[in-house]
Design a protein around this nucleic acid. Sequence first.
RNA 1: GGCGCUGUAGCUCAACCGCGCGGAGCAACUCGUUGUCCACGAGAAGGCUGCGGGUUCAAGUCCCGUCAGCGCCGCCA
Length: 600
Amino acid sequence: MQPRTHKCGQLRKEHVGQSVSLSGWVNNYRDLGGIIFIDIRDYTGVTQVKFQPENKAAHELANRFRREDVICIQGTVVLRGKDPTTGKDLTNPKLATGEIEIDGLTAELLSKADNPPFLPDDAEKVNEETRLQYRYIDLRTPRLQKIMRTRHRVAKIMRDYFDDNGFTEVETPFLCKSTPEGARDFLVPSRLQPGSFYALPQSPQLFKQILMVAGMERYVQIVRCFRDEDPRADRQAEFTQLDLEMSFVDQDDVLNMVEGLMRRIWKQVLDVDVPNPIPRMSYAESMSRFGSDRPDLRFGMELVEISDIAATTDFGVFKDAVAKGGCVKVICVPGGGAMTRKETDGLAEWAKGFGAKGLAVTKVLEGGKVDTGVAKFIGSIAGELISRAKANSGDLLCFAADTNKIVHRVLGELRVKLGKERGMIKEGDWKWLWVMDFPAFEWNADEKRFDSLHHPFTAPRDEDHDKLTMEKAGEVIAKAYDIVCNGSELGGGSIRIHRSDVQGKVFNLLGIDDDNAKVKFGFLLDALRFGAPPHGGLALGLDRIIMHLCGTTNIRDVIAFPKTQNGADLMTQAPSQVDLKQLTELSLRVQTHAKPDKAV
RNA sequence: GGCGCUGUAGCUCAACCGCGCGGAGCAACUCGUUGUCCACGAGAAGGCUGCGGGUUCAAGUCCCGUCAGCGCCGCCA
């Protein structure tokens, strides 16, 4: 094999006359009987190589080259120019290297390829199932190559940024203690302690707090996290976080640090300016106006409160909702009046999937009138309704009347669905937001106790410390914050509790008694007793950041070896059954072999 | 755990309301072709229609089950 002198995407006019050697894959071949053209590809691009019959040995070899063979060629860079007889322009403007070609003098077959199940050129059209099975071919496509390189680059920008700011990257364990709160843990059996299990970390939360107690001051880590829950288009069981924690800080310090990072990444990767500062909105306002704690601000269609006037109508659904302490809200869909009955019925059906009993709609006419749907019930408030919703003739009004939670959920989801479907999002628009002032706790009616909205180590506002009682816990606001980009939560964090007495009170609210707390989090409570600085931090979803930067909605695109919805790796066939011997060594016995065909 | 969509040649797709021997493009194979660049021309080959059952004179098509992939709900402190 000749040593490579250049990469396949590199050669230009100025290299003409040079003797070069390239290695790569056969992207395509065109055998014209005499002259043979081979397009050779590596990660930098494609170059055309020609083999003339006069170079007999090389020509005979090239004659056998097929797609995806790995070859090495050597020859002279020549200008394509114009055909001497016909005068036709021979350059290929579609190719970065299209002004030149290589007059191939020698060729070598480094590795013969079987007929591939699909060609990298066609991959975008191919079934994802097939692509995942042959992931190494899929990854040859320029698109995925580019995503993987962007991912690398972003990780480097992150590390450089935090290095510039005095952070230290510390690796935390993958074999951890299981903490049954939150998501399901992936468990790893202990051989040395039969019957005991490690858990893979859902996040390094406790370790990073302990690193603050340990005096690291500024910690960062790009770290794999694991949650044994069902995947989604933007969620994998195994995912990567940028995790950070800082000592002697309050919210503004963390927010400023993270904003600086986002500005650097978006500037360097996309040449897009992230606003300075990123606007902030309270959780309460976000829920009220957008029905979501991660509002997409690229379009309007805000939720409008109409409970007061809805209660004055004769419409039972509206009156009941308000009487029971819920609310009635409306969103105005510009131009939605043109929707058919079938379409609006479809929306109502869809809304039921989010807990709504239905979805009331009506169309806005000229002169402050409404028609169709629930029009006959709301005639008395039509004028006020149209004015509050800022509706115009031809718009569609969508109402939800229920508990606050369901109304926000349904209209929030509907708003996003219609915003996307009706082309209300401007291409290339970026809207950033910090959502702040989350409630610390949420009442769990089933278990008759409070749950943490964020996690149990989140600090309440200083002025809310005396509300850490069963009576008032619902009013406590946490020092927690989420960063939201175009309606997607990129990350979140909080200032943590650094006093063991406050932490104890919170555990009690969550129904974790002292003994239980000691068993589960004793090491953290101990650490907090031995000199804990005030600290806080944040975790960003690296996969989601890459998705945004690369313009994909499929998280599998940004992970080199992703898993399917079933948790399977179609390439390696994981998970698989294991030898009885392995199980015995781990003191494990499997109850059912549900899929014996997958046995090892 | 639930709802929906999909499954036909190596790949991408056809095949009417259930009616003829399930077709085409690409790839692979053979032959031809000296300026192509998703080369071109000719030929030959390629199928248990995911799997199992049912309805029917007749099923790729309808029904039931099952497996797999995708999207969603639940879940994701």
